[in-house]
């Protein structure tokens, strides 16, 4: 994992701690594990992830549209950020 991705991962992990359900450690979730079905977050919290990505990285979902699969895991969210940074 390169430095930028590692830094973004740390930032994302800190954010996920603020919206996660209290009885599930974010550290126990695999990079490709589904955040909702694993029980880490409530399904409607996906919108909070979108707001986080908009505010932190300036990603415009109104233009992009949101694909639920692409918001499903930590790895796929980091991919969105990287694509936006490279665009």
């Amino acid at each position: 994992m390169n430095g930028d991705r590692q830094q973004r991962l740390q930032h994302l992990t800190r954010f996920l701690r603020t919206i996660q359900k209290p009885n599930k450690p974010v550290e126990s979730i695999g990079m490709n594990e589904n955040l909702v079905t694993s029980g880490l977050i409530d399904s409607l919290a996906l919108v909070q992830i979108v707001v986080y990505l908009e505010n932190t990285y300036g990603i415009d979902f109104a233009a992009l549209g949101a694909d639920p699969e692409r918001l499903a895991s930590i790895a796929s969210i980091l991919d969105i950020v990287e694509e936006a940074a490279g665009a």
């Binding site: 800190r14 954010f15 701690r17 603020t18 996660q20 359900k21 209290p22 009885n23 599930k24 450690p25 974010v26 550290e27």
Partner: peptide
């Protein structure tokens, strides 16, 4: 509660 329940350190 995340810390109390073992859900990780606070942000």
């Amino acid at each position: 509660m995340a810390r109390i329940l073992g859900g990780g350190a606070s942000a």
